[in-house]
Design a protein around this nucleic acid. Structure first.
Lengths: 196, 196
DNA sequence: CCTTTTTTAGACTATCGGTCGGTTTTATTG
DNA sequence: CAATAAAACCGACCGATAGTCTAAAAAAGG
């Protein structure tokens, strides 16, 4: 029972690498088992389907971000910094930049959308807490916090996941965040440095 | 009209129906040609790939909205009314409501995402014109118009396409639109009546 | 040691998107 | 009208893929 869990994780880790380099659709089960050095039966002993493996992989991708996010939440950074930091925590790290390109390929739209959904479920409660703190401190002024967070997350994923965004896009994004959360103009301006 | 054009359109119409009921991925070319009563070779005579057919179908879906939108643009409605009207023009009409539900199924995520992309390409220039007019009239006050329009469209599709939205969601949406375009509070409040 | 879990090899199935060479229908033109 | 070219159509076939199955053997674990 213990060994099974381990194999499952190893398979997910291998699949993760293959998915982000070749895409989900273009990665065959045969390729996965060949890379892992296991038999096909073993794969289907652990997973009901390729799709279920995908869920597992998405879970892994989010889990690592989730840990980073919670560290930031507990830190002594400012409200605005926490918000941006937490959003970025869930994004692929520097050396995995090719992931983003892969995720945006049409063939990966399923993986992409699924991940964003799960991601929002994870982030909305965390960021809601941050905004609530920020309101107490007088940095933010707004109601309907989860709804506003959700809107910001939708915008951020649609803006940054595309890979291509102009300075205007960023300025508009910053402007909308500030106004949506009722922050003073310039509060979120530091975002420019982070994404430039 | 050439015979080929006609067959192409018929195939797209048939595929449209199959796509929204079974999803794009789950609809096989075999099913399409069986429904259409043609041979596989004929299908690939008209389309290079299943993907190209998808483009065609999306084109059809958008075309009808595009006409309605241009009528609204030329009307004498107010700026805010035009914006909302044009966005709604591209949404499925009353008797096609089930389409929206279908589009939101995970199996339709490709169709859904692709449609929204094309949709934005279509709408952004139109709405940009409206906002420009609105600025002259003093209703809106903002720069970076296309970028702001795009953001609003992203939010609107993510909010309304889900089907489930609360009153708070709508209020937040209205608030963001007003602030994004620099409109006076209450300017877009009439949206509540349209989506309630 | 005995039981349960895990793993093995790989042939097999069903389905899929797409190809190909050939045939029929339609339009053109001398 | 007859010859020819072009457009439209046909369906068997192909390679790849996800997933199944069997029967047995290797680990693990108590």
């Amino acid at each position: 029972m213990k060994k099974g869990e381990k194999t499952r994780l190893e398979l997910a880790a291998i699949a993760y690498r293959l998915f982000i380099t070749n895409g989900y659709e273009s990665t065959s089960v045969d390729e996965i088992i060949k890379t892992a050095g296991i038999a096909k039966g073993t794969f289907y002993y652990h997973f009901d389907s390729k799709e279920q493996l995908l869920e597992e992989v998405i879970g892994l991708m989010i889990a690592s971000g989730s840990e980073k996010a919670k560290a930031i939440l507990a830190s002594d950074a400012s409200g605005p910094e926490k918000i941006v930091g937490i959003i970025l925590a869930y994004r692929p790290v520097e050396e995995e930049l090719l992931i983003r390109d892969e995720l945006n390929k049409p063939e990966n739209s399923i993986l992409h959308e699924r991940m964003n959904e799960k991601l929002r479920e994870d982030i909305v409660p965390i960021l809601s807490k941050v905004v609530k703190e920020g309101i107490k401190e007088g940095v933010f002024h707004c109601d309907s916090i989860p709804e506003r967070i959700r809107a910001i997350l939708v915008l951020s994923s649609n803006l940054f996941d595309e890979g291509q965004f102009t300075k205007k896009d960023i300025s508009v994004f910053i402007d909308i965040i500030e106004k949506t959360l009722g922050a003073k103009p310039g509060t979120m301006g530091f975002i420019r440095k982070l994404v430039g």
